[in-house]
């Protein structure tokens, strides 16, 4: 194979040696390979310094993000932070004033609409048209064949256990079932890039699990998913990378685990049998809450945790001790809610 490559690319021997060395390095450093793949080769959707200015305000201010094939990227932010505008730009509805959006390395063209799927936050289908009619119509509008769309539709309906809705009008369905149909509408044409705006809002826990499973399967099937929600637990479960927007700017961006590790651990869970006194005397303790299992203590510096444990062990048997990493929810509130606490 190497010989073949050599011939094909007409590399000189020196180059060949360099090539072999790099090749070996890559094989040995599997993690490195996967990193390379992730950040350079397989990026499907890339926003580069994207800015959108509306007349009296900046809706999106120099946003960067990239989503790989088979990744769910979380786009978080308070209401009005610029999420919808960002998504609309990705969908090609409005054009950025600055920066660029690349799809598989190329700029937006009209043909791309067949590869994009969109689940808008404001749900909407034709209320008086049959489910099959309008979903096949929407698939055809995306340039998908009617026959294949029909097959996909039946598969999806079966998966969501609602096959009997094929011939029903949308207005006859319950809200939760309309959501399922809406979801199918966004994926019926096998999109490569899927944009989900508040995908699970208004669903009961059982259906949330159902749709979450579907989203995960799509991810594993290689779909690139841009995911926006206010439900942090969904983000923690589904996404590996996130961006948090606040007032049109990116305030936090990156891998969830890394983000979490950069935020100090500020919560201590302490399971004890007896009452313990004297927490307040430890430096770094902010507040103490009595719980059924013992105490939950907020601290301002991690070192205080060890002092707490010592104190507790002096006075009682410790059944549980944990220094919790911050939840995404806490991070979000800290970053977005607290003024200038970046």
């Amino acid at each position: 194979m190497i010989v073949f490559l050599l011939k094909k690319s007409r590399l000189a021997f020196r180059d060949f040696v360099v090539f072999v060395i790099i090749f070996h390095m890559l094989i040995l450093d599997g993690i490195r390979l996967s990193l390379l793949e992730r950040s350079f080769v397989m990026t499907t959707l890339k926003l580069d310094q994207v800015t959108k200015q509306f007349v009296d305000k900046t809706a999106v201010d120099h946003i960067d993000l990239s989503v790989s094939k088979g990744e769910i990227y979380g786009l978080l932010g308070a209401n009005g932070a610029g999420k919808t505008t960002t998504m609309r730009m990705v969908l090609g509805l409005i054009y950025p004033d600055e920066g660029q959006i690349l799809y598989n390395g190329k700029a937006f063209t009209e043909e791309l609409t067949s590869k994009l799927g969109y689940l808008p936050e404001e749900r909407g289908l034709y209320p008086k048209v049959k489910v099959s009619d309008q979903l096949l119509y929407l698939a055809q509008l995306r340039g998908y064949s009617k026959k294949q769309a029909d097959k996909n539709l039946k598969d999806w309906l079966e998966r969501f256990d609602v096959s009997e809705y094929y011939n029903k009008k949308v207005e006859e369905l319950s809200k939760g079932n309309q959501q399922k149909i809406q979801f199918i509408a966004s994926v019926i044409h096998d999109p490569e890039i899927l944009i989900l705006d508040e995908a699970f809002s208004g669903l009961d826990p059982v259906n949330v699990e159902l749709l979450k499973g579907a989203v995960k399967d799509l991810r594993d099937g290689g779909t690139c998913i841009l995911f926006s929600t206010h439900r942090m637990e969904h983000v923690e479960e589904l996404c590996s990378n996130i961006s948090i927007l606040d007032r049109s700017k990116t305030v936090l961006k990156g891998n969830i685990k890394k983000i979490k590790s950069t935020f100090p651990r500020e919560r201590v869970i302490l399971g004890v049998e007896n009452e313990i006194s004297g927490f307040q005397s430890i430096t770094g303790v902010k507040s103490v809450h009595k719980k059924s299992y013992g105490y939950e203590i907020n601290i301002s510096e991690v070192e205080a945790a060890q002092d707490i444990l010592k104190l507790a062990m002096d006075q009682s048997t410790v059944s549980r001790f944990e220094v919790l990493e911050p939840t995404l929810n806490e991070i979000f509130i800290k970053v977005v809610g607290g003024e200038g606490s970046e």
Partner: peptide, 16 residues
């Protein structure tokens, strides 16, 4: 109606 039922959001992203 398409606008108020918000199906427009999907339509405009599918078709010019």
């Amino acid at each position: 109606t398409e606008k108020s039922s918000r199906v427009m959001e999907i339509l405009v992203t599918s078709v010019p």
